[in-house]
Design a protein around this nucleic acid. Structure first.
Lengths: 227, 227
DNA sequence: ACTAACTAACTGGCCAGTCAGTCAAAAACG
DNA sequence: CGTTTTTGACTGACTGGCCAGTTAGTTAGT
């Protein structure tokens, strides 16, 4: 063991764990090192400082993201589109994933100050945009969506809505599932009158039971998710 | 001059300016003091530490926000709704405001870790939600929107979309105006067939010319640190 | 003379980054 | 083959800078 590449990868995974535990704002090099059997100095040996480490980490995340959004080609285009949206807007069942989303918000918030971050985030956005637009185009092709549907415009709408869902979920603890299904409905409403798609079931049942995070000891103000 | 209240207010304004200059992540007490003719210690005299200062600052912002979203009762409900959306999603003409939005994103990103922040942010969200829902309800009342329109659902949709616009604008530098007008169109599409509203003009002209941020030196791949 | 509103200087803790080694395994050599 | 040199991966201890918060005063108003 212990060739360069393995160690770097180990540090990437450690960064992920440390990020979930501590959040971006008070993540130290020591925290990351503590998630491995290596020392803090070893981190500095493999990466040229915190910035370089994080740049690498984002690239590493991007790879994973590409896999997550990759199309699974079974079903009609709209079914696959809905599946994509659900995949991207789902991770909330896992506590670790929720914490990661939270930390990822912090990274987004740093993007304006860090060119390197912003460039990678643009890629995340553009890749997802591309995938959505492709599926919308396929839906038009297949006659599920009207011929005057603009894939890029729909994709833009979807992307903005997705970012909004992530943000509201993280910042105020709004309910992801209800926002997500709202979006899914919008997508289904676009179907041309003839073409029904048997997608909608299999959600809001087991999934809705989450989000006690919020109901716990919080003030009285709530309002948030509507009711 | 120099009674307690005035000084506190001066510090609130100073915090705003300092936040725009430095961003939340590396905002120091000194930075804030430097925006006034007072010393850093004076800050500690008036506020019980950074946390308390920021809690107060958020409350101060909230007041301003309430004024910003307050309804100006001229025109039909839908006109006022569109005006509200434009008001909330506009500030981009002013460089200072843009920086503030950026800094505000950082605050949102800290909300999951700070109960105090989250509670105030919930208020921001709930108040805007309430205002939107009220206008939608008024539109239904006035026959502009169909009687089966659910104000809360529309408001939720609008809120999520607005958060998404803020986030995408800050994180990847997406164009606010085009996203905003997209939302405005959605709102106008909801009108019942008879009722046209002469709102849409007056936008996208001078405002669209922004965003050179990106076209500059942005490569194709980077690859960062690996080899 | 008392107090509210300050200030300059200081303290203590934290954290990124550095440095002078250690150590084992691979090359180089005779 | 055995010995020496080199190199890559790593560590513990340290440093320097930064920053929130404190303290021991000073000043101005009443």
């Amino acid at each position: 063991m212990s060739n360069e590449q393995d160690t770097r990868t180990a540090f990437m995974e450690a960064t992920y764990r440390a990020l979930c535990k501590h959040g971006y704002a008070d993540l130290t090099m020591q925290d990351i090192a503590d998630e491995t059997d290596k020392s803090k100095a070893a981190l500095h040996y493999h990466f040229d400082g915190k910035d370089d480490l994080f740049r690498s980490f984002l690239a590493y995340l991007h790879e994973g993201f590409l896999e997550e959004i990759a199309d699974h080609p079974d079903g009609t285009p709209v079914e696959r589109l809905v599946a994509l949206v659900r995949r991207v807007l789902d991770p909330v069942d896992d506590e670790g994933d929720r914490q990661f989303n939270t930390a990822f918000m912090e990274i987004k918030a740093q993007a304006p100050y860090r060119d390197g971050y912003r460039q990678v985030l643009r890629r995340f956005d553009a890749d997802l945009h591309g995938e959505v637009a492709a599926l919308v185009a396929a839906a038009v092709e297949a006659g599920q969506y009207g011929p005057d549907t603009e894939p890029d415009e729909i994709a833009d709408h979807v992307l903005t809505y997705i970012h909004g869902t992530w943000t509201r979920a993280a910042a105020i603890g709004a309910d992801v599932v209800s926002m997500r299904e709202h979006l899914v409905e919008d997508l289904l409403d676009l179907l041309v009158d003839g073409a029904e798609v048997p997608v909608s079931p299999a959600h809001t049942d087991a999934t809705t039971v989450e989000e006690p995070t919020d109901a716990a000891a919080d003030d009285g103000t709530e309002e948030v998710t509507s009711r």
